[in-house]
Design a protein around this nucleic acid. Sequence first.
DNA 1: TGGATATAGTTGTATAATACAATTACTCAA
DNA 2: TTGAGTAATTGTATTATACAACTATATCCA
Lengths: 143, 143
Amino acid sequence: MNEKSLEMIELEMAVLVRRITTITAGKRNAKLDRAAYLLLQQLSDNGTAGVKTLASELQLDISTASRQAAALEGKGYVKKTPNTQDKRAYFYQITELGTNEWMMYKQARLDKFSKLLNEWSDDERESFGHLLHKFNQAINKKM
Amino acid sequence: MNEKSLEMIELEMAVLVRRITTITAGKRNAKLDRAAYLLLQQLSDNGTAGVKTLASELQLDISTASRQAAALEGKGYVKKTPNTQDKRAYFYQITELGTNEWMMYKQARLDKFSKLLNEWSDDERESFGHLLHKFNQAINKKM
DNA sequence: TGGATATAGTTGTATAATACAATTACTCAA
DNA sequence: TTGAGTAATTGTATTATACAACTATATCCA
């Protein structure tokens, strides 16, 4: 294995996380944070789910997922309905308001990425997306 | 611009940050955290620096950099010497102990990445490192 | 030259995201 | 029918961060 590439990935990954933390830290006024965004994305993609499922999909502790879901419910972005089969459990479902907010937030993110990457070639963007996906899969599989 | 690639990057980036947060969150016993690691890296690469410089290089608030530097000084990983030219300021320098810890932490990270990426081709690893670097530069320039 | 302004660093305080532990209410199987 | 297991919530602690107030020093200019 080429050690130089490995070192580059290792370093740039640390820097990337630092930068993204900086960017997403200051936004006090934003209606959605990254965690909420991914949670809504899950519900939007896969329909209803309970806290346990959400936590496992997002690789969060159940308690964290529970608080996030409760926060989103408070804002009216998700609806919580009791599971009549299993009275311990609930179904969470994204609301129309939640869908709207989620789509607006997503569009804002897309705009930001679009500006960041507007000088890249189509090849580079495609390759980057593909490799990021592959990397995330590797994490899922191996950690 | 190919919208599909953009959407892929946007989504995978959110997932990546989530995964990395999960990975780095639980490590109570680790001697270094990511922030400290980057700070030591700066001092290791560029020699001495004051808090203000470190903060600006890491894109942290000065107060945060100050606390991190103080924490590292407490552990004996950096040495703080007064700047005799400007008595408001100090020079921070990595110690031998700090260098050792930093190198061990770095090696542990490299091992982890090595395992994650061991099924990738050299081309993929090189390309990923290069694109990550390019992305970080874009963030630096445009945000 | 001395007072106003700027700067390096520290410390107080607040916030956000998280994990772990304890608890509650319920389910299920022996 | 009771005891082990489970879904969710809530209490508590930790960590990383930013912003604001402050201290000590430096610099600038009238």
